[in-house]
C-alpha cells in the first residue's frame, strides 16, 4: 500500500518505477560526439533514432491515447500544450491529434533532402540547428504527455525500463547539444511539467549528470 503523501504522487516518480532502466551507466558513452566526426551528422542521426524509437512506443500506446481519454495535450495537472496552426493561432488539440501532427511533421522533415540531407556531398542547411531544436522541443512534449497521461499503461505493458532509458538518453543528449531548454522541462510556476520532477530525481540519482 502506498505510504502517506504518495496518493497524489505520479507513479513515474515512485519506487521502483522511477529507477527502472534498461540502460545503466553513464550515457556519455553513447551521447558524446565521436572525435573527428561532424557534429551535425551526429545530431542528425540521433534525432532520427529518437524519433524512430519514440514512434515505436507511441505505436503501442496509441490505442490508449484517444480523443475521449485525452481531449487535450496534457503534460501536468495544470498544463495543456497548444498547437500553433496555419493562421499562427494557438489552438487546443486532442492529444492524439497533436501527436499525430508532431510525428507527421518530423517525419516529413526527416524525409526532406533539404533539411536532413542523405545524399553524399550534400550539406546541412544553415538553419539546421534551429530546426533540430524545434523538433527536439516537440518530441519532448510527446514524452511529457506519455509520462503524464499513460504511465500506468506503460507499466501494464512492462515497458517502463525501456521507456525510462529512452527518455533519459533523450534528456542527456539534449543537454549535451543545447537542444534542451530547462523552461520546457520545468514549465511555468503555476503549471509545471510533470516530467520536471522526474528530471530532478534522475539528476539527484546520477542517472543524468548534473
Amino acid at each position: 500500500t502506498p505510504g502517506p503523501g504518495n496518493a497524489q504522487k505520479p507513479l513515474y516518480l515512485c519506487s521502483p518505477f522511477a529507477d527502472a532502466a534498461l540502460v545503466v551507466g553513464n550515457f556519455k558513452t553513447i551521447v558524446m560526439q565521436p572525435k573527428h566526426v561532424d557534429v551535425l551528422e551526429w545530431v542528425a542521426v540521433n534525432i532520427f533514432d529518437f524519433y524512430q524509437n519514440l514512434n515505436l512506443f507511441y505505436g503501442v500506446l496509441a490505442e490508449c491515447c484517444t480523443q475521449q481519454s485525452c481531449p487535450t495535450m496534457s503534460a501536468g495537472p495544470q498544463l495543456n500544450y497548444t498547437w500553433i496552426n496555419q493562421d499562427r493561432k494557438s489552438v487546443q488539440l486532442p492529444a492524439p491529434t497533436y501527436i499525430d501532427y508532431v510525428m507527421t511533421w518530423v517525419q516529413n522533415l526527416l524525409d526532406d533532402e533539404n533539411v536532413f540531407p542523405t545524399r553524399s556531398g550534400r550539406e546541412f542547411p544553415p538553419n539546421f540547428p534551429s530546426t533540430v531544436k524545434h523538433v527536439y522541443r516537440q518530441l519532448l512534449r510527446v514524452f511529457a504527455h506519455l509520462y503524464h497521461a499513460h504511465y500506468p499503461q506503460i507499466l501494464h505493458l512492462r515497458s517502463e525500463p525501456h521507456f525510462n532509458s529512452l527518455f533519459a538518453h533523450f534528456l542527456a543528449f539534449g543537454k549535451e547539444y543545447q537542444l534542451l531548454d530547462m523552461k520546457d522541462v520545468q514549465g511555468q510556476p503555476g503549471s509545471p511539467v510533470g516530467i520536471g520532477a522526474l528530471y530532478d530525481k534522475w539528476k539527484d540519482k546520477g542517472i543524468l549528470s548534473a
Binding site: G3, N6, C14, L56, G59, E63, R158, S159
Partner: peptide
C-alpha cells in the same frame, strides 16, 4: 518510503498490444 505496488494487467488492451509492446522492447 515511496515504494508502490502496482497490479499489472493487460485486461484493458487489444489482443496485439502485448506482442507489439514486446516487439518494441
Amino acid at each position: 518510503a515511496d515504494y508502490v505496488y502496482f497490479e499489472r494487467t493487460t485486461a484493458g488492451f487489444s489482443d496485439d498490444a502485448v506482442p507489439r509492446a514486446k516487439a518494441a522492447q
